[in-house]
Amino acid sequence: MSDILTTTVIVATIASGIRLATPFLLASLGEAIGQRSGVLNLGVDGVMLLGAFCSYYVVLETENIWLGVLTGIATGLIMGLFYAIITVPLRAEQGVSGIGIYLFGLGMSDLLFQKLVGTPLPIDQFEEWPVPVLSEIPIVGEMLFQHTPMVYIAFLLVPVVAFIINRTTFGLSVRAVGESPESADSLGVSVGKVRFATIMAGNSLAGLAGAALAIELGIFQQNLTNAMGFIAIALVYFGAWRAPGVMAGSLLFGMIGAIVLQAKTLGLIPRAWSDIAAMAPAIITILALIIVANRFRQPAALTKPYVRGD
């Protein structure tokens, strides 16, 4: 047993956890931005799927990975515009319209894949970009600094998002709109404009998450995300709507997944019990939600369309 848990295995497991956390982190950062302004988007998974397919298709046709990444973002922006129109001026119930977006993305990505590609043809994948100097550090370097660019982008976005939300005027408006749209409105902040911006930014991150996934895997398949987007939403609550919290949640989820996978690979979990082990991330998230829900309060205006007092 002890010789199984070598440094190599531990390092590999942590690196795998970070990799697994990446799409969750991108998607949940995006969702957090939207929720801070009072908009819940249950359609993340659908947007991820569309972003994944579109970027996959572009890479397949052009063999240009970064064009694929941009396509993922663009797909997210378009879906974001769509969702913003539904939820802001049209004031649709957010929980449910999100399910509509999810179903649309699920069906549409599958439909497009079957009609345009069909066979799961491989595409170019990200290559690892070892960070100069840092990647040379023993153990830590291998764990943290020998990843694909998308991993760095996702984790660098954490301080960026935190800064924008906490330290900029725009961030102030976002928080105001999420807590009390009436007072934000009375102070001259355009609730609609702020929400359009956050929804589109959030969705573009969901699209990016999809692109990151498809290009990391080098393949697309029906329902590629396997409900990752829904977990990303849960991680936003887990992270108490704060970027570092969301990162902690994504990492926890990724790490548990990696540990279970590694333990299965090494035969530490009997095959009959592997399904039970696979429940671990979900159960731990629920337990964590219980703790978080009592300590932190969600944005007061979350899921409430803003109707200016008549």
């Binding site: 590999a12 497991t13 990799r19 990391e216 396997n226 590694q262 090494l266």
Partner: peptide
């Protein structure tokens, strides 16, 4: 689950 199968592959490679 393609993503899980990919990560399982990576776990093998890491080992």
């Amino acid at each position: 689950d393609v993503a899980l199968s990919a990560e399982a592959g990576k776990a093998h490679i890491a080992n």
